[in-house]
Design a protein around this nucleic acid. Structure first.
Lengths: 204, 204
DNA sequence: ATAGTAGTTGACTGTTTAGTCCACTATGTT
DNA sequence: AACATAGTGGACTAAACAGTCAACTACTAT
């Protein structure tokens, strides 16, 4: 009953794009509404604040991304190949983003998390929980690689965080430098970190 | 001639602290002036804009940091020990920051660079140039390690960037999680990345 | 001691911002 | 057809914001 609307979706799309191509604090509610083609009255009809919108948008976007990660990290794929594919996937995403926006934009969780962690508690917690999911993909792949005798990682959880730090670090570099170069060969560093020789990876 | 002033220094200190503990865009000129105990008229007497102030402050702060890095990366120190000391230094700095502010704040260049790179060109270039200096310390240590037969890194420049990505990635994680934990053992991952066995490091 | 100058002050402008409010409109349901 | 209701529009307020300016003050070189 009543009229139907896609304003909510439009606002969520707009806020993500504005934050990613710019920053959280520089993204105003007016900008979001302009970009979404939605009036402020409608904004406040659906959301209480920018941070609530951002949190919901982040969550929705993560639900989409999750599907792709589940495919990449399928347990039917050999563990080191999962990591290899994940590196390639990151490169692919950033290439497409650069083609679309003319800029490498890096990891949205890192950029946003880094900016708001001291100021927006609810958002920070949302980002933290998304990151925790991401660690689990890597951690599980490492455990499986250990089980297959491909690695001898003593603390897979800690190594998963290190691995993500390495990947996210290069993604952040890529954003700051606006260059895809350092992302081309993401996996070789990752495998060094895991103590895997390149030959073993090719074999796997 | 005329009266003397420390307002410029106070403004530079204030802007760095506000950006680091918060973010660039959320730091207003009024906030900076309040924190520095300086009136806005004086701000505009010394600086044209927030971005100019930030760039000068960043540069001044880098000149201080440089002295410490020159000591840590002294060529009289064995190359792998330099890297070890650099990791320990990063941990020490973040510990002190956490003791002072109640938060881990990570690397200021990364946080700021990540936030402003799509919006503030002059600032972005300043940050880029500081980062380029940082890469050189690592790169040189890697070359020296190669020469000493401690590593066999084929592209020291690329590996320096990877190494910094790893360190900065963990620093960013530490900021987002507000935890020093992942920084405790920064060096072991770094040495894995470089293909060095821990025993060789201890020996060095 | 005083003149010239570097630096300070606070009041001022206009703009952007978040957030409110309510009359209005479109749509599914009966 | 008309009612109930989900969603819209736009005008409004108050606060925060960047930036300006001219009168003022304190210092130092002579």
């Amino acid at each position: 009953m009543g009229r139907v609307s896609d304003a909510k979706v439009k606002l969520m799309d707009a806020v993500l794009e504005l934050i990613w191509t710019g920053s959280y604090a520089s993204t105003t509610i007016d900008h979001i509404c302009d970009k979404a083609g939605v009036k402020k009255g409608s904004f406040y009809y659906f959301f209480d604040s920018k941070s609530q919108l951002a949190a919901e948008a982040l969550d929705a976007s993560w639900q989409d991304r999750r599907v792709e990660l589940d495919r990449i990290f399928s347990v039917t794929v050999p563990p080191l190949e999962r990591l290899q594919k994940y590196c390639e996937f990151n490169y692919k995403v950033q290439s497409e983003i650069k083609a679309q926006y003319g800029r490498v934009l890096g990891c949205p969780q890192v950029s946003l998390g880094c900016e708001v962690c001291t100021q927006e508690d609810a958002l920070q917690k949302k980002i933290q929980s998304i990151m925790d999911y991401k660690y689990k993909y890597i951690e599980s792949a490492i455990r499986d690689a250990n089980a297959a005798g491909l690695t001898q990682v003593t603390d897979p959880a800690a190594m998963a965080r290190m691995s993500m730090a390495y990947i996210q670090g290069l993604m952040t570099q890529a954003r700051i430098q606006n260059s895809l170069e350092s992302l081309r060969d993401l996996s070789s560093g990752l495998f060094s970190l895991l103590g895997v020789k390149s030959k073993e990876v090719v074999a796997a």
